[in-house]
Amino acid sequence: MTLTLFPDGVENPANLAKLDDAARLLGATCSQQIDGRLIAVENTDRAREIYGRRPLRERATLAVGNERRGLSTRTLARANEILVIPTQSRTVRTLNVAAAAAVAGWYVLRGSGPQARARRPDVRRPALLIVGTDHVEVGSTLRSAAAFGFRDVLLDDRGAGWFEGTGATRREAMAAARRHKNPLRVHRATLADLERFDEVLVALESGKTVPLQQSRLARGRRQLVVVGLRADEVHGLAAADIQVASLELAPVQKPPLRLVASITLAEIARQVGRRRRGPAGTQARPPTFAAAVKLRSPEDVLFVDPSRLLSY
């Protein structure tokens, strides 16, 4: 089984570099040649979700498209299968192309269960702490967080300049985060804030720990998921209950935050789930306000049978 990443018309050299990083992390190659089964990642009507698939057992090529136009019609027509990464935001509906390739490749290679259905998914969603040193990586990660349904994110800004960077740095970070339509609230935080949570789960790109898919990531606001932390920093953390989970990616020097974080966020979104739909036609029940004359409770009233009155 081999996986090839096929960037179909990707223009930005930085994105191409990150696609190479994604390929190395996934143990795949990045090529312009299609090898084996062609799997397209595109948001189309006939696309299947990336969740609920079996692990890949054959050679395959994963095609991702241009930053603005998406995949070409030619590639889409040739595709054996089209996959979509389900997002949960009304405004941020797409991921960075390298992040999308990493998420799709991770699920295609490993397979997963289907996305959960829940009556109130937001109650199940954990808090998220992003530890970032690069402004574009932080911006891309915030874009992914918004796309996967997060509304609030904690950010440990270690020189990324999200809060206090120069104008140029902040502009690039905002652009990467699609800030003009990204309603995410970003709160300043440090590792000292870990003590506020009952459970802390640190997601690492590799290492001999529990696989991320076997970790519970839907324990609500009392749980904090940390991404972007180095493995050597985990031992010094002071929190009540720290778990470490691994994405089981190939060990590389300085893996891009956006790739590791996007995969983690996608897995959180899978476990947290989407809102369970009611029967067709049902809507949220609006509040009703009634005016009525309240009667005495039935216990206060003596009902008398007419026959007893006659005998009386």
Binding site: P286, T288, F289, A290, A291, V293, K294, L295
Partner: peptide
């Protein structure tokens, strides 16, 4: 049984 309904804002 427990009240005489008079009116309601139903939505």
């Amino acid at each position: 049984r427990t009240q005489l309904p008079l009116g309601r804002l139903i939505g």
